[in-house]
Every structure is written in C-alpha cells, then in structure tokens.
C-alpha cells in the first residue's frame, strides 16, 4: 500500500511538471480530488481578459501578465495598426495595474517612418499619459538592456519594446532572456515588430496586426453617422498560440470605454490578388429603355461535337 502511494506521488509530480511545461495550471490536468494540495503548490500565470469571449477562450483566459506577447506587422505601412493594438492592450493592462507607469522603448528608424507617440492622441486612446515614459535608445543592445531592466524592476505596468524587422541581434536567446525576466518579475512585455517575418521566439502569443475599415460613428439614438470614421478596427491573426490553426478576427477598440469588442461588419472575402467575388459587371437591368438587341439567328441545341 505504501509503495502504491509513493508511485502515485511520483506520477503526480511528473504530471505537474508536464503541466508547468505546457503552461497550464496543474488543476486542469488533475483528475484526482487533491484540490487543496493544488491550491498550495500550483500558481497559475496571471492573465488579463480581453473581454471578447471567443478570443479569450483561444488565449486560455487572456493575455499573460507574466510573459512576453509579440505583435507583428508585415510592412511598415501597418505601423499604425500595430501600435494601435499594442497601445490598446497597454491601456487595458494599465487600467488594472497597481503601478500605472508604462514604458515605450522605440526604435529610431520606426520613429522616422511612422512618427513618435503623440501624448494627446494617446490620452484620447485611453492611456494615462502622466504615467507614460518614452525611451529612445541609440542601439538595439541598449534597447534590450532597457527592456530587461524595466521588466525586472517591477515598477512598470507594462514595457513595450518596438523593433523593426528581424535583426540578428535579437534572436531566440535574447527573446528567451526577456521572457524569463518578465516571468520572474511577473510583469508583461509587449514586443512590437514592424515589417517583420514570422520568426520563432519565446513569446507566449504572437499576433499579426493589419488595419481594418473602421465602423461608422454611433449616434446617441443608436444609428450610425454615414461617412464618419469611428473607433479603430484591427484585422488580427493569432499566429502563435495553443490553437491548432491560426485564428483570424476583426477587433474594434473602443477608446472611450477602454474595451475591445468584435467588429460588426463581416470579414470581406479575401481572394488572391484582391479580385472581387463577382468578376462580371454588375449593371442594373435597364428599366425604362429598350431591351438589348436579341442575338441574331436561331439558337439550336447541338449535341456535343463528336
């Protein structure tokens, strides 16, 4: 009997290790009713829900607050969408954090291309600008050191690191270092990569961000103001996660209420080469004029030519 108990114990420890490796809370895998023990040993990672049920389910509860999340754009022209999504996440985190300070570590080239963060715009976007710090390091090594130090200090609600492309100086080992720091200090790092390829990294999740057409502004009576530009919409693809396939969705950031909601319009069908679904001309049938000329000759139903 005693031997059986030891075997059970070992089996249990192994299960717990595997669960940790997979990043799940051990309670999810345990079938045995050993609840109180779980509560004592297993500390689940802290998550922040994005408020969209479908997405939160895909993210297993939300964005990890003790890890690194990567947001990438495929081209520099999408910098607005990438920055917008990152800052929306930061606003969500800042809202709930005890220490509200945010640090944006920018990349010089991206600043020239896409502009510097603009505080009034940030405030309207839902961030507390009083607690917004902006860093302009000269080199990538400095930026990495800064991100590491900032995350490890635990003084910030979130650290945003902006990088352009896939520099060789920021490889797998550097990203691993960053995510370990984040894990140790239990503070999130948001990695914003402009104009980059998909690359293996130790980020927990990776999003691909593109801009989507914004919905129209909602008037107080519930109708839409035609031709207006409302809250920003992002076309996001969850590229790296535990889901078997990448997940695409349209998300709207409501900067007034500081929350995400699924965008209302359906996703337009995306065919290769941006071709429209109905390739023929869609002219209305003429109503009050003469009909088109009938085809000349007689129409015969021939058999297939043999």
């Amino acid at each position: 009997m005693a031997k059986h108990a030891t075997a059970q114990e070992r089996l249990f420890a192994l299960r717990e290790t595997i669960a940790k490796l997979e990043g799940k809370t051990p309670t999810l895998v345990s079938e045995e009713p050993q609840g109180e023990r779980m509560a004592a040993t297993g500390k689940g990672s802290r998550r922040i829900a994005l408020g969209v049920d479908e997405l939160d389910a895909a993210l297993e509860g939300g964005l990890p607050l003790d890890g690194m999340t990567e947001i990438r754009t495929c081209a520099m022209r999408n910098a607005g969408a990438g920055s917008g999504f990152v800052l929306a996440l930061a606003a969500l985190i800042q809202q709930q954090a005890k220490a509200p300070a945010l640090l944006w570590i920018s990349d010089r080239f991206s600043n020239v291309e896409a502009g510097l963060p603009y505080p009034i715009g940030l405030a309207q976007y839902g961030l507390q600008v009083r607690h917004f710090l902006h860093a302009l390091p000269k080199k990538l090594e400095d930026a990495l050191w800064l991100a590491e130090t900032a995350a490890a200090s635990g003084a910030l609600a979130a650290t945003i690191l902006e990088i352009r492309g896939n520099p060789s100086a920021f490889g797998l080992s550097e990203s691993r270092r960053l995510s370990l720091r984040a894990k140790a200090a239990r503070r999130p790092i948001l990695l914003l990569r402009h104009a980059s390829e998909e690359e293996a990294s130790s980020a927990v999740f990776r999003f691909h961000a593109e801009p989507g057409p914004a919905a129209e502004r909602v008037l107080p009576n519930g109708t839409m103001l035609g031709g207006s530009i409302g809250f920003p919409v992002f076309r996001l693809t969850l590229e790296k996660s535990r889901n078997p396939a990448p997940l695409s969705f349209l998300l709207e950031w409501n900067s007034r209420d500081r929350q995400f909601c699924p965008a209302r319009q359906p996703e337009p069908s995306r065919l290769a080469g941006d071709a429209t679904a109905h390739s023929g001309p869609r002219l209305p049938a003429s109503a009050d004029g003469s009909d088109r000329a009938a085809a000349l000759g007689r129409l015969l139903a021939f058999d297939r030519a043999s």
Binding site: G80, G84, P117
Partner: peptide
C-alpha cells in the same frame, strides 16, 4: 487643457 478633437497616435517629426 487637452483638445477634444481627435489626434493621431503617432505624429511625424
């Protein structure tokens, strides 16, 4: 006092 009109997130230098 901050303006009420919408301002961009990133401003070109």
């Amino acid at each position: 006092v901050m303006t009420e009109r919408e301002r961009p997130l990133r401003l070109l230098a």
